[in-house]
Simulated scan of single mutants.
Amino acid sequence: MKFLVLIHVLSAIIGVGPTFFAHVLLRKKQTLEELRMSLSVGSRLEIFPKIGGSLAVLTGLLLFWLGDYGSFMQIWLFGSLVAYVIIQIIAIGFATPNQKKLGGWVLDPSNQKATTLPGEQVLLWTKARNYFYAASTVGVILFIFMIIKPS
């Protein structure tokens, strides 16, 4: 059981972790070249939430079924699951599409000589960053639920 808890905690950190610095990669006051590099790095990091997050949910469900946690409606357990789903909705449904559209323009070879972003891309940049801030906030709530859970 301790090994399953270890896998669960590590996969949760690895799965949700990139959410905590995605907005850093999209920080304000970057040059366009820095933004290109940030978007390139960000696209490589997408694999961690997909694998780690899925593994965290599976191991969490296993822990619930194998452990003595009582009712699924315990606030920390239910809240953790809801927080995780909200993070996924924000990241996959809102932040990532804006980030991908921005990356499509920024990383397009025909725009490599550009030195500033057009207004539409600035708006995408801002939206993606703000969505990632929201996902990070919910991630903090998720970890609070997991830390203060009953022993």
Results as ranks from 00 to 15, higher is better:
Ala22Thr: 07
Ile86Asn: 02
Val106Thr: 09
Trp105Arg: 10
Val9Cys: 06
Ile86His: 03
Gly60Asn: 04
Ile7Trp: 11
Ala95Phe: 03
Val106His: 13
Val41Tyr: 09
Ile7His: 01
Gly119Trp: 03
Ile148Phe: 11
Thr137Gln: 04
Gly17Lys: 03
Leu77Asn: 03
Leu63Arg: 05
Thr126Arg: 15
Ile47His: 05
Trp65Ile: 04
Val5His: 14
Pro109Gly: 01
Leu35Lys: 08
Thr96Asp: 02
Gly79Glu: 04
Leu4Cys: 00
Phe78Thr: 13
Ala95Cys: 00
Leu6Phe: 15
Gly53Tyr: 08
Val122Ser: 11
Pro150Thr: 15
Pro49Ala: 06
Val106Asn: 10
Glu34Phe: 06
Val57Asp: 06
Glu33Arg: 10
Leu124Thr: 03
Gly60Cys: 10
Ser54Trp: 06
Pro97Tyr: 02
Gln74Thr: 11
Leu61His: 05
Lys2His: 13
Gly93Met: 00
Met73Tyr: 12
Gly119Val: 06
Ala91Asp: 05
Gln74Arg: 15
Ile90Ala: 00
Ile51Ser: 08
Lys29Ile: 07
Leu4Asp: 12
Leu39Phe: 07
Lys101Ala: 15
Ile13Asp: 09
Ala135Cys: 10
Tyr69Gly: 01
Leu61Ser: 05
Lys149Tyr: 09
Lys2Leu: 14
Ile92Gln: 08
Lys101His: 10
Ile14Tyr: 03
Gln99Lys: 13
Phe72Cys: 07
Phe3Pro: 01
Asp108Met: 01
Asn111Gly: 03
Thr116Tyr: 01
Ile7Ser: 07
His23Glu: 12
Lys100Ser: 04
Phe132Glu: 08
Asn111Arg: 09
Thr126Phe: 08
Trp76Glu: 12
Ile87Gly: 00
Leu4Phe: 06
Thr115Ala: 11
Ala134Tyr: 11
Asn130Met: 03
Val138Tyr: 06
Met146Ser: 09
Glu33Ile: 10
Val41Ala: 13
Lys100Pro: 00
Leu6Asp: 10
Gln99His: 02
Ser40His: 14
Lys29Ser: 10
Ile51Leu: 12
Gln74Lys: 13
Gly53Glu: 14
Ser136Val: 01
Pro109Phe: 04
Gly52Lys: 04
Asn111Ser: 15
Thr59Tyr: 05
Lys149Arg: 14
Gly42Phe: 06
Ile47Glu: 10
Lys113Cys: 10
